[in-house]
Amino acid sequence: MTEYKLVVVGAGGVGKSALTIQLIQNHFVDEYDPTIEDSYRKQVVIDGETCLLDILDTAGQEEYSAMRDQYMRTGEGFLCVFAINNTKSFEDIHHYREQIKRVKDSEDVPMVLVGNKCDLPSRTVDTKQAQDLARSYGIPFIETSAKTRQGVDDAFYTLVREIRKHKEKMSKDGKKKKKKSKTKCVIM
């Protein structure tokens, strides 16, 4: 069974824990209790493949930012979460993405942009803004509501699919490099 290491990042209060708990335990946590770091595991079937999701729910508070490099190193894919009623959390996505790329030393890291709290009427981040940002990053965008469960499975499952595509691409690139290195030079 394939294991996928997913990391949920975003500013404090955007609903990272609520999304994760909704996926794992099928219930909505409405009281806000700032996370330092929590880890969850769940076995699911995605596109006919049974897999184990190892999900790291991270601290959004700035005082825990020193811990970010460590979990970013171990993560295979990242859910970059903002709240649709919090423009600052949307603007912060850029910083999370840049930090992930720096730590992973790669421009090509599996990510999904997630606009959470889409059940709320007080939207300050337009869907088109988020779609445009995701398009500019070359990553999928999904709106979710941890409260109603809308888009929750889709967000995590899409990230797994992005990781699969990335692994497939990397193995193809690896095979191309191996083929090239088999060419021999004969000096007579």
Results as ranks from 00 to 15, higher is better:
63 E>I: 03
63 E>D: 11
63 E>N: 06
64 Y>R: 00
64 Y>I: 00
64 Y>W: 07
65 S>H: 08
65 S>Q: 09
66 A>W: 05
66 A>C: 14
66 A>K: 04
66 A>T: 09
66 A>P: 14
68 R>F: 01
68 R>M: 06
68 R>I: 01
69 D>R: 02
69 D>N: 05
69 D>L: 01
69 D>G: 05
69 D>Q: 05
70 Q>C: 08
70 Q>W: 11
70 Q>H: 10
71 Y>E: 02
72 M>L: 03
73 R>N: 07
73 R>C: 08
73 R>G: 06
73 R>M: 12
73 R>D: 06
73 R>A: 11
74 T>C: 11
74 T>A: 09
74 T>L: 09
74 T>P: 04
75 G>Q: 05
75 G>A: 15
75 G>L: 02
76 E>W: 13
76 E>Y: 12
77 G>H: 01
77 G>V: 14
78 F>N: 02
78 F>M: 03
78 F>E: 00
79 L>E: 00
79 L>H: 02
79 L>I: 11
81 V>F: 12
81 V>R: 00
82 F>V: 14
82 F>N: 05
83 A>R: 06
83 A>G: 15
84 I>F: 14
84 I>R: 13
86 N>K: 07
86 N>P: 03
86 N>R: 05
87 T>R: 10
88 K>E: 13
88 K>L: 11
89 S>A: 13
89 S>Y: 01
89 S>I: 05
90 F>C: 10
90 F>L: 15
90 F>H: 07
92 D>W: 10
92 D>Q: 07
92 D>S: 09
93 I>V: 12
93 I>S: 04
95 H>V: 08
96 Y>W: 15
96 Y>E: 02
96 Y>Q: 04
97 R>S: 10
97 R>D: 04
98 E>A: 05
99 Q>K: 04
100 I>M: 07
100 I>H: 01
101 K>E: 10
101 K>S: 10
101 K>V: 07
101 K>Y: 07
102 R>K: 13
102 R>L: 08
103 V>M: 08
103 V>L: 10
105 D>G: 15
105 D>C: 12
106 S>R: 12
106 S>H: 12
106 S>M: 14
106 S>L: 13
107 E>H: 11
108 D>E: 11
108 D>S: 10
108 D>P: 05
108 D>L: 06
109 V>F: 12
109 V>N: 02
109 V>W: 06
109 V>K: 02
109 V>M: 05
110 P>L: 03
110 P>D: 02
110 P>T: 04
110 P>A: 04
111 M>V: 05
112 V>L: 08
112 V>N: 00
113 L>W: 12
113 L>S: 03
114 V>W: 01
115 G>W: 10
115 G>N: 05
116 N>S: 14
117 K>A: 14
117 K>P: 01
117 K>L: 15
117 K>G: 14
117 K>R: 13
118 C>R: 07
118 C>W: 09
118 C>T: 12
118 C>N: 10
118 C>F: 12
118 C>M: 11
119 D>C: 06
119 D>T: 07
120 L>R: 07
120 L>Q: 10
121 P>R: 09
121 P>F: 11
121 P>C: 08
122 S>D: 14
122 S>L: 09
122 S>P: 10
123 R>W: 11
123 R>V: 13
123 R>A: 14
123 R>E: 15
124 T>C: 12
124 T>Q: 13
124 T>N: 13
124 T>D: 14
125 V>L: 12
125 V>F: 11
126 D>S: 10
126 D>T: 09
126 D>E: 11
126 D>A: 09
126 D>P: 07
126 D>V: 08
